[in-house]
């Protein structure tokens, strides 16, 4: 890690800074990381069995997934991507919704009332400005809510990144920009994504605070996310966080990383695993047992199985239902088309 990168828990599990949270909270977040990993691996396995559509794994990024969301309130906004299922789940988006989405069902996008997690953005980069808009609305209406948007290094090359960062800076919106710099945008390495040495340098160009952190260090992620969230909530505007992490898996289940990278670097990053280091730390504090972890993993696995079963048990949309959510009320031309489908079939 470059020197200006915040780290609190080193890869060997030793503290090199002050933990922002107590041991009980660390145990909670550790448990969430384990659930996220079990979910992630289970989805990849189920995709291979043909039970889910394409899946974008986040393995190796669990500290970001859980830590970025950890300081949020239940009704804060989360505007994230297809690779942020762990973060969305931890922010209150039900696992069955995540699974439904991956089976190819729009009902997965129906977030429960009271939870302000948007369905995942599938296009790259267009969603960051939405977290500026939600935050701007909250600022104008004085709700005290914060908007977190998550994205990868690839998204920072989109013009949308510039417009979102610029608007957030100009209008001083309570937005937290959380970039998981995981080294790869499908096959494109970071070095070819930008000539900048680091993404965090971009923050200054928007008059925004920026901080770079070890994204595989749960405590560093929580520390940075907490400061950014508190600043936003207190009216001190947006923050850009660059979390240095690594996508140890493929871009999606349809991707073959062997075509563009060797395993050497991936193995180096696996040695810096975000879950392992917290486990070593907790174990040294007498806060971890194998039985506890096995219990969490077993429950998570069952939760995913149950969510898949629930999703698969749901009858697919009828022809009528594809017309029912284009507008608050279907328009006359839509009703006409619905009649055509009823009359002639697909």
């Amino acid at each position: 890690m470059p020197q200006d990168t915040l780290q609190i828990l080193a890869p060997n599990g030793e503290l090199v800074g002050d933990p922002p949270i107590d041991l009980d909270r660390i145990r909670e977040l550790y448990e969430a990381m384990v659930v996220a990993r079990v979910y992630d691996r289970k989805c990849t396995a189920m995709q291979k069995q043909g039970r889910l559509a394409t899946y974008a794994p986040f393995e190796g990024q669990e500290a970001c997934q859980i830590g970025a969301v950890a300081p949020l309130n239940a009704d804060d906004w989360v505007v994230a991507t297809y690779r942020d299922a762990g973060a969305m789940w931890f922010a209150g988006y039900p696992m069955v919704n995540l699974i439904l989405g991956r089976t190819g069902d729009e009902r997965g996008g129906k977030t429960p009332e009271g939870i302000n997690v948007l369905p995942p953005s599938i296009t790259v980069g267009g969603h960051m400005i939405h977290a500026v808009g939600t935050a701007w609305a909250d600022k104008l209406q004085d709700t005290g809510r914060v908007s977190l948007t998550m994205f990868g290094d690839g998204a920072t090359s989109e013009g949308d990144f510039h417009e979102a960062m610029n608007f957030a800076g100009v209008f001083d919106t309570p937005t937290v920009f959380f970039c998981q710099n995981n080294g790869w945008a499908i096959s494109l390495p970071f070095e070819q994504q930008t000539a900048a040495e680091s993404l965090v340098d971009k923050a200054v160009g928007y008059g925004m605070r920026g901080v770079r952190i070890d994204g595989n260090d749960l405590l560093a992620v929580v520390a940075a996310a907490t400061t950014a969230t508190e600043d936003a909530r207190a009216g001190r505007g947006p923050t850009f966080i660059e979390a240095m992490t690594y996508r140890v898996g493929p871009h999606t289940t349809a991707d073959d990383p062997g075509r563009y990278r060797t395993e050497t670097l991936t193995d180096q990053w696996r040695a810096k695993d975000p879950i392992d280091r917290v486990r070593v730390y907790l174990e040294a504090q007498g806060q971890w047992t194998e039985a506890w972890e096995a219990g969490i993993a077993q429950a998570a696995s069952q939760q995913v199985e149950d969510a898949v079963a629930e999703a698969e048990a749901l009858e697919p949309f009828t022809g009528d239902e594809i017309f029912s959510a284009m507008f608050a009320e279907p328009t006359l031309p839509l009703l006409d088309q619905r009649e055509m489908l009823r009359r002639d079939g697909p």
Binding site: T134, L140, D160
Partner: peptide
């Protein structure tokens, strides 16, 4: 000026931000 807002020159930003505001319950 908080209600009738001069924005930077960025049409995607204007629409994307207005979209976020609308999602959050406003009528931009």
């Amino acid at each position: 000026g908080d209600r009738v807002i001069d924005t930077p020159v960025a049409e995607s930003g204007i629409i994307g931000a207005a979209f976020g505001m609308a999602v959050a319950g406003m009528r931009p």
